[in-house]
């Protein structure tokens, strides 16, 4: 489903953010992308979302190469990938359900579809009772659930989570990860970029470790450290 083929990304004066990275992610997989900050995780995310193009190599999602996309096709490409970030990126002056509905409105979904999907996905993340609250009235974990609901409301085949637990306490973080696992269980391909050792070790899923732009380890049912 997602293929990175000898992908290199060079920024400015010889900074190799990614260096000859090759990776295959199958449909329905759950994968942790780990490594210290500056290892190239963010670049990986940017390239996968086609916010940027690789300097060398190819990235393909569902058989479509990102470089081949025309500018006006990029939005439709992005609709395949739901994203959540460390900082939630919610709109503070809108309620929970408006935040989620926003993602459907901007892709011009019919109103009936919006009324149907928003409660559904809020139910999935367990926030139906907070649908009229504003982000400021919610805890960090709840805010991340809203972000998750927004990412999922379009039914994207891929969910990309960039440090989704970075701002959360361990217990809440664990709830979010369990939610991600459940989403994966329903068939969505899930990619989690993180540097939280505990979670990765506990989950025992595929782990791809980046260091200074290179893949140093790719392990099924792996852990954060290499010693296991």
């Amino acid at each position: 489903m997602i293929v990175f083929e000898r992908v290199t990304k060079v920024y400015g004066d010889n900074t190799y953010a990614l260096d000859n990275v090759s990776l295959r992610i199958k449909k329905g997989e759950f994968i942790f992308l780990v490594g210290p900050s500056g290892a190239g995780k963010s670049t990986f995310v940017r390239l996968l979302l086609r916010e940027d193009l690789p300097t060398k190599g190819r990235i393909m999602v569902d058989g479509v190469e990102t470089r081949q996309l025309r500018t006006r096709e990029v939005p439709f490409f992005r609709r395949q990938i739901g994203t959540v970030f460390q900082d939630f990126r919610l709109l503070p002056e809108r309620t929970v359900s408006e935040n989620v509905a926003f993602a459907l409105q901007v892709v011009e979904a019919p109103r009936r579809e919006i009324y149907r999907r928003v409660p559904q996905v809020l139910h999935l993340v367990g926030l139906v009772h907070k649908s009229r609250s504003r982000p400021a009235e919610l805890s960090g974990g709840e805010q991340q659930r809203v972000a998750l609901a927004r990412a999922l409301v379009n039914n994207p085949p891929i969910l990309l989570a960039d440090e989704p637990t970075g701002n959360l306490d361990p217990e809440t973080a664990w709830d979010i990860i369990k939610l991600l696992a459940e989403i994966n269980h329903r068939g969505t391909t899930v990619i989690v970029a993180t540097h939280e050792r505990e979670i990765v070790d506990k989950m025992r899923r595929r782990v791809v470790k980046l260091e200074r732009g290179r893949i140093v380890r790719d392990q099924e049912r792996g852990a954060y450290g290499s010693e296991i």
Binding site: L49, R72, R78, R89, F102, A151
Partner: peptide, 17 residues
């Protein structure tokens, strides 16, 4: 700018923005 960033992220077309 925040809304615009989110719109881009969830795949709004340029003209929609």
């Amino acid at each position: 700018r925040r809304e615009i960033a989110i719109m881009k992220l969830v795949g709004a077309t340029d003209w929609f923005i």
